[in-house]
Amino acid sequence: MNVLALGLSRIGYETRVYFRSPDTLFFTFLFPFIMLGILTAAFSAAGNFGTNPDGTGGVSAGAYFLPGMLAAGMLLSGVQNLAVDIAGEKSDGTLKRLGGTPLSPISYFVGKIGQVFVTGVLQAGLLLLVARFVLAISLPTESEKWLTFAWVFIVGMITSAFLGIALSAVPRSGKSATAVVIPIVLVLQFISGVYLQFTNLPEWMQHLASVFPLKWMAQGMRAVFLPEDFAAAEQTGTWNLVGVALALGLWLVVGLVLSRVTFRWIRKDT
């Protein structure tokens, strides 16, 4: 069996393992749903976001936070999920056993990235269904908006997966993985415009967030789901989709290189 076929054959296995883990389901798959519900309930009483001076227009709290929750789901599914999962597999000897089989690192990567993509698609699809039919959020009708959604989502998911594989090299054990990874992911969500309006953050924090991919994923999603006049609230006063594509493309390459360079079946210090 060739390298790609072996990797593709592992996607089903990796996906089944993902859905059999209660902790993973709660903290990566269901977390965006929970946060969208909480934020919608907490801010709905304040009225619409982005209203005109006469009180008309704007979008509901749920509609405003939906793009951020989609971006956060991408980060959780890729970075947090894989970083914790792979660190655990190193710690319990799973990777050591796999290293003694014909499975190559590329096949292993294909299986993990495929699992992230499958679960990410399910998560995003269900989140959009909940937004539309439970929270009554209007979704875009223009085909170009959905085309933007498609490329931001695909590139963002692959980038997050590679960065998750690379970050898995940092924790020294499976037990310490959540303590290392979750604070990083949580801080990125708060400074990247997921829970707070990005331009309301201090300028230094905006510049810091712009270094990392989550800010660009959230900006790309806002370009899809928010009205055009909301672009004025971005750093450059536009959605800057070219910048989104360049930033995510750069991080995809960085993640690919780091994941390949740092990945080991067995830690060097073991």
Rank of each mutant, 00 (worst) to 15 (best):
F117L: 15
F198N: 04
I137S: 07
S192E: 04
A169P: 00
A166G: 06
V118T: 11
P183F: 10
L208G: 02
I158T: 09
L103C: 11
V181H: 06
T148A: 12
A209Q: 03
I137E: 04
S138Y: 00
L139K: 07
K175P: 00
R97F: 12
L214R: 04
A209Y: 02
F109Q: 10
D92G: 03
L127G: 07
I158Y: 03
F149M: 09
I106F: 14
D92V: 13
T159W: 04
D92H: 08
V152I: 13
Q206L: 07
V110L: 12
W146G: 10
V211N: 00
V211Y: 07
P213C: 12
S107G: 14
N200I: 06
S210G: 15
L135E: 02
E142W: 00
M205S: 13
G100L: 11
L196G: 00
I154H: 00
E203N: 11
R97K: 13
Q80P: 01
L214F: 07
V79A: 07
M205A: 15
Y195L: 14
K112T: 03
A87F: 05
I184Y: 10
L129W: 06
K90A: 15
A177Y: 04
W151Y: 13
K175Q: 15
P213D: 10
V170Y: 11
Q123V: 09
L201V: 09
V194F: 05
K215V: 09
V155F: 08
E203I: 11
V134G: 05
P171K: 04
A150T: 12
P213Y: 10
V181F: 09
Y108V: 04
F198D: 05
Q197E: 14
S160N: 11
L147N: 05
A169C: 07
T141M: 09
P105D: 12
G120Q: 03
G100H: 04
Q206S: 06
L95R: 00
L126K: 01
I158F: 14
I106K: 08
F162G: 07
Q115V: 08
A169T: 07
V134Q: 01
S173Q: 05
A166F: 05
G100N: 10
Q189Y: 02
S143R: 13
L196S: 09
T141Q: 13
L126W: 01
T119L: 03
G93Y: 03
P213R: 11
S210F: 03
G88F: 08
F149I: 11
Q80H: 12
L167A: 15
A177W: 04
A166S: 09
E142I: 08
V194L: 09
Q123P: 05
L188E: 12
F198Q: 06
A161L: 10
R132H: 12
Y195K: 01
N81T: 13
I165G: 05
I184L: 15
Q123F: 05
I106H: 02
L139R: 08
G125M: 10
G120F: 06
G114M: 08
L95K: 01
V118F: 11
Q206N: 09
I191W: 02
L122M: 15
G164S: 08
L128F: 06
S160W: 00
L167K: 00
A131Y: 01
I86F: 08
E203A: 14
G125T: 08
R172P: 00
